[in-house]
Structure formats: structure tokens, C-alpha cells
């Protein structure tokens, strides 16, 4: 039988390079299912990623795809989108990729509210380089470069995106796949900068350092730390530690960058002149 997935992947690249149980594969499946539901013309879909285990995702999909440099996926995507407004541009990044080396690009893409969808696979660690802490590693958790525990505070990417000017912001997890697919669909369909943070498991790098050596243990943990907005309200400050709200945080209409640039084109052409 040919499944939806089979239809969208570059089969010669499979089985993929990710470790057993790695959440990257679950997110890939969710993105494909969301895109398939939207019935987009796949010749007009572009998927861009940065560098990291998660960013290898672009090698597996049968779209126009680009595995760029570490942290830079969003500016590459910005150029692509501006050059061809017919393209649907989906950007997939790891937590380190998006929030450390690419943190500045992330807030600026949000600030411009350019029509891109950013999906961040947050496994709370640098997976590819073997388990160093990232800006999304929870305080107190361990990484190979935080052997005594991480003293940094983690970003809340969703709050960051909202403050910076995104149009759509949501958070899902690899445990809550069905819900995540619907969040992704809304994000993909949104005009403007849309963000879905996906809490994901990395049993090999995060799990190993944090006493969750299997994907099953990690998914149980993720199930445990993800709470609904309602449940969150009833938690004490102490109980909120290391918990994440999942669901939709923002869905508003704001002027999109290319729409505004089109106004500039009209204005400039009206003013004329050729110097």
C-alpha cells in the first residue's frame, strides 16, 4: 500500500539517519500530513532548514528543499519568499539552530511578519554535536557542556515570537501528534510569520544525560510536562517548573511584509524618476 508519507518522501534516503525513536521523524510525519491535508501544489512548496539532526529533514522530502547553514534558514527563506511570492516556504529548525545562533534572525523574521512558517523541533539539546546544552535546555538539566547542571534560563520561544511580532504561535509535542498536525495546518495556512514549536525527544543526547535513555521514557516525560492552558492556570509556581503549555497562543492578522513591500513598489513606480 502506498501511504500519504510514501508519496512525499525521497525514498532513496530511507531509512533515515535519525536514531531509534528520535522525534525528528515524528515531526516529519506530522508536517507531511499537514501539508497533504492542505492540498498544496507541491511544486510550489519549499522547505528550508539550518544545521542539526532536525535540519536533515529537508533531505527527506520531495519538495524544493534546502539544508542551509547553522541558524540561517530564516534569512535564506526570506530571500526565497521575496523573490517568488507564489512559493509556500516552510522552515524547520532545531532549538539551538533557531534560538542560539539563529536567535537574531528568528526575532527579525517575526518582526517583519514575513509569510513563512517556522517549525522548531525543540529537543532541548544540541543533538547533532552530541548533547551540549542549548538556550532551551531547562535550568538544572544536564548536557555534556553542563556536567554539573545547566545554570542558564531557557527561552520561552512562543512568548519571544509573540513579542517580536509573529501572526500565529502555537506549541505541540511529538506525543500529541494529532493535535500538532492541526496546529501546523493552521500555521501553514496563515498569512504572515507563523511559528509552531514542537517539543521533541532526543533519547541519545538529551536522554542519555538526563536519565531517560529510551524514546519511550522520553515520550512519557513529554506527556507529563505538557499541560493545557487551563491546567497551567491551576498550577502553583513550583509545579510550573519544567512544564510547558501546549496549544495555540496567538492567531491574529497583521500586515504581512511582502504585502507592504508591494505598496512600496506601487509608490516608487508612481513617483518615477530614473536615477
Amino acid at each position: 500500500m502506498k501511504t500519504v508519507i510514501d508519496d512525499y518522501i525521497r525514498e532513496e534516503m530511507f531509512p533515515h539517519m535519525w536514531c531509534p525513536g528520535c522525534g525528528n521523524g515524528i515531526v516529519l510525519g506530522a508536517i507531511i500530513r499537514a501539508i497533504d491535508d492542505l492540498k498544496w501544489d507541491r511544486d510550489k512548496i519549499v522547505m528550508i532548514s539550518g544545521i542539526g539532526c532536525s535540519s536533515r529533514i529537508t533531505g527527506y522530502v520531495d519538495f524544493c528543499s534546502m539544508n542551509t547553514t547553522h541558524g540561517r534558514a530564516l534569512p535564506f527563506a526570506t530571500g526565497i519568499k521575496m523573490a517568488n511570492l507564489d512559493l509556500k516556504v516552510v522552515v524547520v529548525m532545531g532549538d539551538g539552530d533557531c534560538s542560539a545562533i539563529g536567535g537574531n534572525h528568528f526575532i527579525h523574521a517575526a518582526r517583519r511578519n514575513i509569510d513563512l512558517t517556522a517549525i522548531i523541533i525543540n529537543n532541548m539539546i544540541y543533538g547533532m554535536t552530541g548533547g551540549q546544552y542549548s538556550p532551551l535546555t531547562p535550568t538544572g538539566r544536564f548536557g555534556t557542556t553542563a556536567p554539573y547542571g545547566n545554570i542558564d534560563q531557557a527561552f520561552d520561544l512562543t512568548s519571544l515570537a509573540m513579542a517580536a511580532g509573529a501572526s500565529y504561535v502555537a506549541r505541540g509535542t511529538v506525543y500529541h501528534v494529532r493535535q500538532s498536525i492541526s496546529l501546523m495546518k493552521k500555521a501553514l495556512d496563515k498569512k504572515g510569520f507563523s511559528v509552531v514549536e514542537m517539543i521533541s525527544d532526543c533519547p541519545i543526547s538529551f536522554g542519555k544525560m538526563n536519565k531517560m535513555r529510551t524514546a519511550v521514557e522520553m515520550l512519557k516525560w513529554i506527556k507529563d510536562i505538557a499541560v493545557s492552558k487551563k491546567a497551567w492556570e491551576n498550577l502553583s509556581v513550583e509545579e510550573r517548573k519544567e512544564k510547558f503549555v501546549i496549544g495555540e497562543f496567538l492567531d491574529i492578522d497583521r500586515p504581512e511584509y511582502n504585502e507592504r513591500y508591494n505598496e512600496i513598489i506601487k509608490k516608487a513606480q508612481k513617483m518615477g524618476g530614473n536615477e
Binding site: T3, I5, P15, P20, N24, G25, G29, A30, V174, Y175
Partner: peptide, 15 residues
């Protein structure tokens, strides 16, 4: 279909 949706390797399908 939860097994299918959560399989990271697209290795199980349910019809």
C-alpha cells in the same frame, strides 16, 4: 492510527 502517527520511521501503517 496513533501508532502510525507516532512512528518516527514510517514503519507501521494501519488501514
Amino acid at each position: 492510527n496513533l501508532c502510525e502517527l507516532r512512528c518516527p520511521d514510517f514503519a507501521i501503517t494501519v488501514e
